[in-house]
């Protein structure tokens, strides 16, 4: 071995380094899972919330909105919409879609029952009470 920069050592460092940092990531994940119950508002997950989350998903709300900042950036952030608008406004809004104003972005009519909408709102309420390290910066999301 005359060369002091070898492919075999580069390979060893790759495998070693990759495994090392993945294990570190697992350790941090382990700690995160332990801490989560204090932050994730999971004590308030009711059957209504669970059903609301399912409605959120099966109507592909994330395709336009963001939730805790993740999703599409086409329509408003909904992680704090419960606080921003309140349940009555949300209900009326969902029912009133689409607005049909020419040239404006349109939200489809999803034909949800009153109970469905209540569950969706329960989900949004639950989401708004997750400890997000004070994000978003203000009520506008």
């Amino acid at each position: 071995m005359s060369a002091t920069f070898t492919k075999s050592m580069a390979r060893n460092v790759f495998y070693g380094g990759g495994v090392f940092f993945f294990l570190l990531f697992l350790a941090l994940t382990f700690d995160t899972m332990k801490v989560l119950p204090k932050r994730d508002n999971s004590q308030n997950i009711t059957p209504a919330v669970a059903h609301g989350k399912k409605l959120w998903e099966t109507n592909n709300c994330i395709g336009c909105h963001t939730l805790l900042g993740e999703g599409a950036y086409f329509a408003p952030e909904l992680g704090n919409v419960y606080v921003r608008r309140g349940p009555d406004f949300i209900k009326a809004w969902i029912k009133g879609q689409p607005t049909g104003v020419p040239g404006r972005r349109q939200m489809p009519q999803f034909n949800l029952s009153d109970m469905d909408i209540d569950d969706l709102i329960a989900f949004l309420k639950y989401a708004s009470e997750i400890n997000t390290n004070k994000w978003p910066p203000n009520i506008e999301g």
């Binding site: 002091t4 460092v13 380094g17």
Partner: peptide
């Protein structure tokens, strides 16, 4: 640095350079 090491055989760092990058 790496070329210098592998071509001249002179070493300014002990051991394999691949680990030094790490």
């Amino acid at each position: 640095i790496s070329n210098y090491q592998s071509t001249t055989g002179k070493k300014n760092l002990p051991g394999d350079f691949a680990l030094w990058i790490f």
